[in-house]
Structure formats: C-alpha cells, structure tokens
C-alpha cells in the first residue's frame, strides 16, 4: 500500500474511533526503519474537539507486514503494553487495536509516540551516553526485575497469555523454538543442535514463579536518555507467561554484548543480577540461569534462521530480514559456544 493511501485510510479509521472529533487529519508520516517484525510509522494526528479546541498528538502505527521475523498475534503485543501502562515499567499508551485487514490491509495498532529519546544501541558507545552505562544498566535490569515481579492476573494478562505450569516453562519454550528451527533452517546447525541436546538432558528446576516474560528484553528495545533514564520498553510481541529467568537469560545473550564484553554492552553480569534480584524479589539460581542463557542462544538462532527463511520464500524481501541472517547466525553460534564454556 502506498504511503498516500495508507495516510488516507488511517485518517478515516481514526476518525471513526473519535466520533466527537472534527477535521481529523494525519501529517508528517514517516516510516521508521529497522523493525523486522512490524512496519512502524510515526505520524502527527490533528483534530478539533467538540468545543472547538484544536489538538495535535504524535502517534505510532505498528502494522503487520506480509511476512515478519517473528510470527505473533497483534493482540498479545497490544495487551502487554496496556497491562504495564501506568506502572513502574515505562511503556507508551495504547490507543486502538485493529485485528482485521479491512482498514489498512493487515492488522495494526496505534499508540502514543514517546519522542525525544534514543532507541538504537548505536548512540550508546560515544559521549554523552557512554558515561551513563552504569546508571542505564542498573535501570535496565531494575525494570526487567519489575516485569518479573508483576502479577499477571493483577495486570490482566492471564486471560490473554496461555497458562503454563512452573515445571513446564522450559519444555514449552524449547519445544516451540526447536520447532521453528526444524521448519525454517536452511543450513544444518551442529552447534545449536548440540546445545538443544544439552538443554534437554539437563533441564532447569521448576520456575520460582510463573510470571510475565517480555520475550525480547535487550539493549535496543527501550528508549533511553543521556542521563541513564529509560522512558519506554518496546517490542512486546513475544510476551508470554513463563519463567522470569528466561528474560534474564535473553538479556545476557552474548549477541547483545555489542562488542563491549558485558551484558547489553552496559553492565557487568554480577551487577545486572543484583539489580534484577532487588527489583524482582526473586533469587537467581546460577545453574538455572545458565540453562536459560543457552536456551537464549537456541531461540536467537531460531529467529535469525526464520528471518532468512522469510526473505528466501519471497513473501517479504525487506533487507532488514537479511541482516540478522548474515550478521548474527555465526555470532549466535559463537555465543552458544561461549555459554557452554567452549570458546
């Protein structure tokens, strides 16, 4: 769909959601590149209230592409954001969810834009952000601990996300991502297959609690400022119920070291664990965490090979799908070797 048509149809949709408003218009539409699982646009919505007052607001549109890096339901992401809005976990406000394809050709949601902050990790490795790593890192893992501490029922996510027993968390996730590898890999992966055999032979203990798992909590998926503050946790499309250690393990995936030699490129591992434990009220079992770190390598590799598959099948030729396949499959193999103590 061309941008002009998208703008017209989106304005019509939003006007239908705001029956009190007049002169609903959309301007300054700009595609945000880099998202591999959704098409993301920022735009300005303007309208006139019933009392005649003019209004303007920066908003975000997240729309499903024909094929994406991560196959998830739009509602999961929308409800996860909505669950944490207004809590200590900073997230943008969700406005409208459309699960049908009539309005814009595919499902989408519209959310508040949190403007004025960095998201990509590229800015982190130079001043003024370089000096904030200790503060930013502590805040990053504090927020992850707050997500782990959340009561899924209290934030109204237990009706949206499938339930799982504490002793089944690891198996459900490993089965799922091994299945993705089986379906999508285009080249055999002996390191990751060895990792899967090791994980199955050495399962972790049952989860301390079944909690909300963000699913992709890493440097690059939150908005940060130049003082070490975090203003929005993004990319909740893989949110699910499970073992909170899964998120901690994913955040420790060495592919997110960014060449800095420490988790997220921000904080020594021990400091991150302290921040997470303090905020979550949970304890880290080192062996269980190690299991989830190796699992993160399996999951990561499954996502990267899915990315290659989506491009090769031709449904989506966005070059963003090629980047993880080329740049991260070897890195993820090396990460798995590192976690297994072989590199």
């Amino acid at each position: 769909m061309e941008e002009a048509e998208l703008t017209t149809r989106l304005a019509g949709y939003i006007a239908g959601q705001m029956p009190q408003a007049r002169d609903v218009a959309i301007t300054e539409v700009a595609r945000i590149t880099g998202g591999a699982s959704r098409q993301t646009y920022r735009f300005t919505l303007s309208w006139t209230e019933a009392d005649g007052a003019p209004r303007r607001r920066g908003l975000i549109l997240r729309r499903d592409p024909a094929d994406s890096l991560i196959d998830t339901e739009r509602r999961v992401e929308f409800e996860a954001y909505r669950a944490f809005h207004g809590t200590g976990v900073p997230v943008p406000e969700m406005l409208w969810l459309e699960e049908g394809s009539d309005a814009l050709g595919s499902p989408f949601f519209v959310a508040e834009e949190i403007a004025g902050f960095q998201a990509g990790p590229g800015a982190l490795w130079a001043s003024p952000y370089l000096e904030t790593h200790a503060v930013l890192g502590a805040r990053k893992w504090e927020i992850l601990g707050q997500i782990a501490a959340a009561d899924a029922a209290a934030v109204q996510l237990s009706d949206t996300l499938p339930a799982v027993a504490a002793e089944d968390c690891w198996r459900r996730e490993l089965d799922h991502w091994e299945g993705v590898l089986d379906a999508d890999e285009s080249e055999p992966l002996p390191i990751i297959r060895a990792a899967i055999r090791h994980l199955r032979a050495n399962p972790p203990p049952p989860a301390q609690k079944v909690g909300v798992v963000h699913g992709d909590y890493r440097t690059g998926n939150f908005l940060y400022d130049d003082q070490g503050g975090v203003h929005g946790v993004l990319d909740w499309e893989m949110c699910h119920l499970g073992d909170p250690l899964e998120d901690l393990g994913w955040s420790f995936n060495p592919v997110w070291y960014f060449g800095q030699g420490m988790p997220g490129g921000l904080l020594p591992r021990e400091s991150a664990i302290v921040a997470w434990e303090r905020a979550s009220g949970l304890r880290v079992d080192p062996a269980a965490l190690k299991w989830w770190e190796l699992f993160a390598c399996v999951k990561g590799q499954a996502i990267w090979v899915s990315s290659a598959r989506a491009w090769m099948d031709g449904a989506n030729r966005d070059p963003i799908l090629v980047y993880p396949a080329w740049a991260l499959i070897n890195a993820q193999d090396r990460a798995a070797l590192h976690v297994m103590g072989r590199l």
């Binding site: 890195a331 072989r342 590199l343």
Partner: peptide
C-alpha cells in the same frame, strides 16, 4: 572443529 568452524566464519564486526 565446531569451534574452528565458528572462528573461520567470524565476521569482523561480530558482537562476540
């Protein structure tokens, strides 16, 4: 050999 193979294929900008 798995370690050696991972080293052979390593790209200069690898995060690890």
């Amino acid at each position: 050999e798995l370690v050696a193979g991972a080293e052979r294929r390593r790209l200069s900008g690898s995060p690890i």
